[in-house]
Design a protein around this nucleic acid. Structure first.
Lengths: 245, 245
DNA sequence: GAGTGGTCTAGACCACCTC
DNA sequence: AGGTGGTCTAGACCACTCA
């Protein structure tokens, strides 16, 4: 039975369950606990760490929700086999690529205030023709164009005047501006490249594009951003882990 | 402050937190609790229902995880605005379409045992060349071909001989055979249609296809199924809700 | 029958937000 | 200052699995 030694800091602002979850995750990804292996039962683990059982359960639940552990009543908790892919998270493409060591950069194609179309108005929960920011950006990696992004944000919610969206990702800006994005709904599909896109993305006519449209909501449940993005499928895909709960 | 009346059955095998979550969700989707509205605080709700606070919290957490509610410390719990899309779930395409009232049907193109390629072997956690089932199916809706599905399952785990995969979805079969699928990892991208696909899917040359590959794991963490699917993007897209936790 | 996770209780203290 | 959700405790009983 694997028994990694975890260290807890009860004076830390980081919750105990989170400290345990982090170290348990590390033990799994590092291979200290092997794929398929069964963990010690949660009551014993709690005792070992001087925690209550609910707190230990909460820590384990974090990793169950990430798809790294599976629990079976009467049996125990096991590590899921198979390579751990990176889950879909609420980060921008910019963050994604920075993390993977590439050098992404962004070109601002246009930024203007326009009246919301019927669809945009519905997605952003504003009146039709209400003023919204319309931002078009081209994201590239090295010399390769990667994605064409078209975002809309309600003018009465967000002030984009003077914001440098080439240096800073949109989500990073929103975070700095005090918007906590908690929920997003998105739809992924595909279509052929259109005329203007063909040149911008350096793709020949009739090339397939991967498309994603997303509406993001802040922690008061208000729609903050709607975007339509088109990715070159040779350079981008969406990875995710689904967990049945 | 909205106060829907919930009914609890303490003798039911359905957990109390789940009974509350179901009725709360119903109150939200029916509009009894409006979008953007704040809920009563969780201590009062627990008292109203004669529940402990942890149980009430667990019920609310179910809907937070679904992206229907957002909680803010010091403020309260609010209903997320915006249309509720259906989230990605661990169901087959067959289930998806049945639920939406269409008449889908499946044609079994081929089923055979083959030796696992290197990639398949890695995904299914079996040795290279180990025997795996290879199943190819064409799913249609009415007269319209919809998706081409190619699945692989380890022979030593699943017995597919004599199984009618035209009447029953693969996931429904696995469920009936005692496999509880708890975790799946998937990757979504796009590509152009290939020669053979073009005829089967009734798509002209150079049409874009939406692709998904998925590995599913049962509740012991073992890889049970790997699939590569190609969808006609005009007829299919992936909807999902992301929740920051 | 022994061991596991699933649910539930009745409190407590704290961090954060709003007024 | 008052109210909210976030965390944590120390138990309890139950359902399920497996030997």
């Amino acid at each position: 039975m694997p028994s990694p030694r975890f260290t807890l800091d009860r004076s830390s602002p980081v919750p105990l369950y989170f400290q345990v979850a982090e170290q348990l995750e590390q033990a799994i990804v590092s291979g200290e606990i092997e794929a398929g292996e069964r963990l010690e039962n949660e009551i014993a683990m709690a005792q070992d760490l001087g925690l209550s059982r609910p707190t230990m359960r909460q820590a384990i639940q974090v990793l169950v929700d990430k798809g790294m552990l599976v629990r079976r009543r009467g049996v125990g908790t096991q590590v899921v086999r198979g390579q751990v892919h990176r889950p879909v998270e609420l980060t921008s493409l910019f963050d994604d690529l920075s993390a993977s060591g590439h050098q992404p950069h962004t070109k601002l194609l246009s930024i203007e205030q326009v009246g919301a179309s019927e669809e945009i108005a519905e997605e952003l929960q504003v009146s039709p023709d209400a003023p919204v920011w319309s931002v078009r950006r081209l994201r590239s990696i090295g010399e390769e164009p990667l994605a064409l992004m078209h975002n809309y944000l309600p003018c009465d919610v967000v002030e984009l005047g003077g914001v440098d969206l080439e240096t800073q990702g949109l989500y990073a800006f929103l975070r700095d501006a005090g918007f906590v994005i908690r929920v997003a709904r998105q739809r992924i599909s595909a279509r052929g490249v259109s005329g203007e896109e063909s040149a911008l993305l350096d793709e020949p006519e009739d090339s397939p594009l991967l498309t994603m449209q997303r509406t993001a909501y802040d922690n008061s449940g208000r729609a903050v951003e709607f975007g339509r993005h088109a990715y070159r499928p040779s350079l981008y895909s969406f990875d995710m882990t689904l967990v049945d709960r």
